[in-house]
């Protein structure tokens, strides 16, 4: 084994990575492990170091509000990811076909992504306001029976969050897919023309499979957004009406800072992290595999 160093600069390089090492080990790894530990204790306002096994997890899964939050997140995640992918993909196809006008409109579809979740939530809260928003505007046009009061409807409030965040994030999917399409060999398009393949068929059966990696990337980013969903809910519905649009992150935040039950909150966080990893791992794996194949 060689202990002598050929690169003196190597020492400085190690030094330069100290901040990164601290962040990775203390703030990410350490903090997550600490949260795990707390979730196994009986801590309330302050951390205590006793050990109560999985008691907090049992409490968590008998908590109506938590179960409801998890269910909401699953529904939201499915709808949000699916809608973003479909809309983003259609937009990408349209723009790719209509380059002159599409190129100019491209920035129109992405601008919501520059806005904060809070601003997004507040705009849509206003637009969906049953008294003065879209419902009222349509009624003024003469459709006096028109109903669009999802924002205050227990059964539909969650969908308003889907609408707002899909508006915000579809442009992201479109951008990623457009970048992917640009990377596809121009001869594929030429070959399709010579074979007289209709455009929709080409996109569905040839181009879309070739975009597997960008699709996986977009899905991964969207799923990250799903797991982190918080600001938009707080701004738009505050979890209401009732608990109709509660989400796990909000449950965790409320128990961390409002209800002073940090052990229960940490258990919730651990469950959320685990679910996030379980859902994302296959995508990580698939993406890594397709990257390796392309390399």
């Amino acid at each position: 084994m060689n202990t002598r160093r050929i690169d003196r600069g190597l020492r400085r390089a190690h030094l330069a990575l100290v901040p990164m090492a601290l962040v990775a080990l203390v703030c990410y790894l350490g903090a997550t492990l600490w949260s795990l530990r707390i979730s196994l204790s009986s801590s309330r306002s302050f951390p205590v170091s006793d050990f109560v096994g999985l008691a907090q997890y049992r409490r968590l899964f008998s908590n109506e509000r938590w179960l409801h939050s998890l269910g909401n997140l699953a529904t939201y995640g499915l709808l949000f990811v699916a809608a973003c992918l479909v809309i983003g993909w259609l937009l990408a196809i349209l723009i790719e076909r209509e380059v002159r006008i599409g190129g100019a409109l491209r920035l129109v579809f992405l601008y919501p992504y520059a806005m904060s979740f809070v601003a997004t939530g507040l705009v849509w809260q206003w637009m969906l306001n049953p008294g003065l928003g879209i419902q009222e505007a349509v009624r003024r046009w003469g459709f006096s029976e028109f109903r669009f009061d999802w924002l205050v409807d227990q059964d539909h409030a969650l969908y308003t969050i889907v609408i707002a965040t899909v508006w915000q994030a579809s442009g992201l999917v479109m951008t990623i897919l457009l970048a992917g399409m640009r990377g596809i060999d121009a001869d594929i398009w030429r070959a399709a023309r010579i074979d007289a393949v209709p455009a929709w068929r080409l996109h569905l059966w040839v181009i879309a499979p070739m975009l597997a990696a960008p699709f996986a990337t977009a899905t991964l980013l969207l799923l990250t957004g799903v797991a982190k969903l918080y600001d938009a809910v707080v701004a738009m519905t505050q979890g209401g009406p009732g608990t109709a649009s509660e989400v796990p992150t909000k449950f965790i935040m409320d128990h961390l800072f409002g209800r002073a039950n940090i052990a229960l909150a940490s258990a919730g966080a651990a469950v959320l992290v685990l679910s996030a990893l379980i859902v994302m791992m296959p995508l990580f794996y698939a993406r890594a595999r397709s990257n390796r194949r392309n390399a």
Partner: peptide
């Protein structure tokens, strides 16, 4: 990729 809430309290 993890929600920030996990690392918030620590």
């Amino acid at each position: 990729f993890l929600p920030i809430q996990v690392m918030m309290l620590p």
